[in-house]
Amino acid sequence: MPVAPTPAIRIGSSEIIALADGAGPFPFTSREAAFPDATPAQWAAVDRFDPGAVDAEGRWSLNFRAFAIRGPKGITLVDAGIGPADAPATWAPLPGKLPESLAAAGIDPAEVDTVVLTHLHTDHIGWAVVAEEAVTTSGDGPSTGLSPFFPNAEYLIQQAEFDAVDMLNPKLRETLIDPLRASEQLRLLEGDAPLRAGRVVATPGHTPGHQSVVVADGRESVLITGDLLVNAIQLLYPDLAYVYEIDRETARRSREQLLRTEGGAVLHVASSHLTEPFVPMP
């Protein structure tokens, strides 16, 4: 079944496009256990703000999505979803639908010139590197290799995230880092960095080298959050800790700093996991 065109927001000369990759229940714990300091009154506020985040069985329901920034100077992808059927995010609703969402948005993977990986959790890197059939040099027939799904893109990861890969998931050295290095498509960042449209902002805490992306024009901006926030409760109450944050205090500071707006400013939050891809800052 074809994937319907996904929502988009225009900021200045750039279009930010939400790309669906899947949806399903969070399998590890209840949302109440994931945010143990949240009160019943706060959850009631969340249910009014984002009622689609709980399914019919009362489970925390997640969307999985990436975002494309399409501007006059090229196309940037922020995150790479959960991936194909053989991707490592076996807890998520595989296979993901990102290729179909890209096609619905009129984007060929070869057109993407930059891929920003907000962090190295498996539901954000699934389509970054994929298996392919390659002919061995010995002529013995086909063998499976790994290649970047976006063949002409530079992949941006924070140095701090790269340094923590063995703690986060040591298998990623072979399945992600090595293929990107072999193709000379990996670029390591040290903190904030400009993009062709927007900028990368270091937002550590969820993981050591988590990063987000901001696209701004005048007093209007879009914040592509990665897992800076994973549930609407962190949008309404940014000080609340999430049990799966590696450094909860650092994550809180990153979240509060990036969600802070000045009077008259308009901030759209582009979230990987909330029900709606674009949410105005309340």
Rank of each mutant, 00 (worst) to 15 (best):
H206T: 07
I16L: 02
T250Q: 10
D108A: 07
S30I: 03
V112P: 00
D163G: 06
W127K: 02
E190Q: 14
G12H: 00
G24P: 01
P148L: 01
A182I: 06
V165Q: 08
L19Y: 08
V130D: 12
E100I: 08
G52W: 07
T137H: 11
R181T: 07
H121Q: 13
N152D: 06
E100P: 07
P151A: 11
A87Y: 02
D37K: 03
Y237G: 11
L186A: 04
P208R: 04
T6D: 14
E249Q: 12
V266P: 01
T90A: 12
F49C: 10
R219W: 11
A251K: 09
A251V: 06
I69A: 00
K97Q: 12
D37N: 04
I125P: 03
I16A: 00
L236T: 06
P280R: 11
D239N: 13
R10T: 11
A33G: 09
T122V: 12
M167Q: 11
V222T: 13
F149L: 11
E161G: 09
I82F: 05
H268T: 15
P84F: 07
L236S: 11
V213R: 00
K97T: 15
D247K: 12
E57G: 10
P280K: 02
W43I: 02
G139S: 10
V129I: 00
P2R: 15
L94V: 08
V54H: 05
F278M: 05
P142Q: 13
F67C: 05
G126A: 13
G71P: 00
T275Y: 01
S61P: 04
L62N: 04
R219E: 15
I246M: 15
G218L: 09
F67R: 01
T136C: 09
T225A: 05
A105K: 08
W127F: 14
V3L: 15
A110D: 04
W43Q: 06
D79Q: 06
A128V: 10
L240S: 05
D140A: 13
G96N: 07
F150W: 06
G191V: 12
I75T: 04
I82A: 02
G12A: 05
F26P: 02
A131R: 15
Q158Y: 12
R70T: 05
A89W: 03
A20S: 14
F67S: 01
A216K: 10
I233P: 01
D108V: 05
K97S: 14
V222E: 00
R65V: 08
A23C: 09
L274R: 00
P51K: 03
